[in-house]
Nucleic acid binder design. Structure first.
Lengths: 187, 187
DNA sequence: CAATTCTTTCGAAGATTTCTGAAAGTTCAT
DNA sequence: ATGAACTTTCAGAAATCTTCGAAAGAATTG
């Protein structure tokens, strides 16, 4: 196998392994990776063939990737097959994934935290039989969590808003305020 | 059930549901949540009882949480049981989780990207039979990904370095450079 | 040092997720 | 309308992940 193909395979496999951690399944991750490392667009049969997966599996996961906006359909003149190519704008890919994750992971928690706050609000519930300290501590912890999640959300929006270039400004702006970040990039 | 208990249960269950997305299993997430919403420390039997899980399961997951540094063992005078309490410093919890995730999810990818770069380095491999454009495009994409991951890593270090207070500076510093972030906190 | 109390391990069972492949569906050219 | 080319669906099979619970292992005490 030529070095390019070897490199591609390596990346596809690794990316697939990571897929699990990223809330998407291995195949979906592999398909995305395959398209990411391939210059021309690929059709379903090529994907099936390269990744050794069934037609059904390929179809389902390609569709999911299209739904997520991580890959797009491409049509070639005089060819009825559908081809697919990856969105190779890394920032855009990041934004897509993060938004989806926030929607699925952070927002439900925020809603629950909100509800928890209401449940222990003295104006809405009878707390007379409860230990004050327990209630206070609970309120404190819930509130800290909410503040934290909200702050992170804001930071996230900031990062997205600033994009690739703005990111540098952000890093720049920060280094005037705090001591230089310790470069922990070992090796 | 009293409102406080109801609120606790709600949060524990929701947190557990989210666990899967966060690369930890449901039980581990539930145990952490239970300790997070409980002021006093709990022993294994109390955890088993409240979450309706087996001793083995409790033991395994408590250990994992201790390993991660998300909860800690507490000993009570004259009591041989081990009790556990959550690390309730939300920032610290965040740091712990993110470092672990980076170690497991980002670093392996970076290593692979590094290796990919080497594989298509003309000084180390014979690329003469390959299409130049394919190789160039591959190099470009791999390099973009590396840059992106590294940049995010730096941002991450910055955020951690700055902590709770510094975070505000960061947000502050940013708002001088870019237009105010659109508050997308719907509802 | 033996009884007691508590913790950990681990194989099997159970639950969940993912994948396959054949069949049904769709689209398009003729 | 028909048939060829291509896509989607879905029920069962396979793989993976999680949990249980009994037994083994430690630690502590009298």
């Amino acid at each position: 196998m030529d070095p390019l193909q070897e490199a591609r395979n390596l990346l596809v496999r690794r990316w697939g392994e990571m897929g699990g951690y990223w809330g998407i399944n291995r195949t979906m991750a592999e398909i995305y990776a395959l398209l990411f490392v391939t210059r021309e667009s690929l059709c379903t049969d090529q994907i099936m063939d390269q990744l050794k997966i069934s037609r059904g599996n390929a179809s389902m996961n390609v569709r999911a990737l299209v739904d997520w906006g991580l890959i797009e359909r491409v049509h070639r003149l005089g060819d009825r097959k559908e081809y697919f190519k990856a969105d190779t704008d890394v920032w855009h890919m990041f934004e897509t994934i993060m938004r989806e994750r926030r929607r699925r992971e952070v927002e439900p928690i925020l809603a629950t935290l909100q509800r928890c706050t209401e449940l222990v609000n003295p104006e809405q519930a009878d707390l007379s039989s409860l230990n004050d300290e327990d209630v206070d501590e609970f309120r404190r912890r819930v509130s800290e969590l909410m503040t934290f999640l909200t702050t992170m959300g804001t930071l996230f929006e900031m990062v997205l808003e600033s994009g690739d270039g703005g990111m540098k400004s952000l890093v720049q702006g920060f280094s005037n305020i705090a001591p230089p970040a310790p470069s922990k990039t070992g090796a």
